[in-house]
Amino acid sequence: MWGLWAGAVVSRRSFRGSLIGRLFNYKPIVLNEGGLELGSEVYVVVRGATFFDLRGEVLKAS
């Protein structure tokens, strides 16, 4: 399994307004960050998970 950091590409906005990033294996990770732009690449740490998706925190833009 991968470690603390993961790269994600931010590709969509959910209907609730959150940003959705994708890990390298297309796992969706919800990013509740205000300053990110769609299309940006970021390093994230996975802080939580549901059966449906991951919940992440942005560490820095890559």
């Binding site: 399994m1 470690g3 950091w5 796992k27 996975v46 802080r47 939580g48 998970a49 549901t50 059966f51």
Partner: peptide, 27 residues
């Protein structure tokens, strides 16, 4: 069953520190 399996799989992503790629860029 789907929710049970999905939870197990996705929980493995949380805080998996130092087991594998670490700070390696994955893209």
């Amino acid at each position: 069953v789907i929710e049970e399996v999905g939870t197990v799989i996705n929980q493995a992503y949380v805080g998996a520190v130092g087991r594998g790629r670490g700070k390696q860029e994955v893209f």
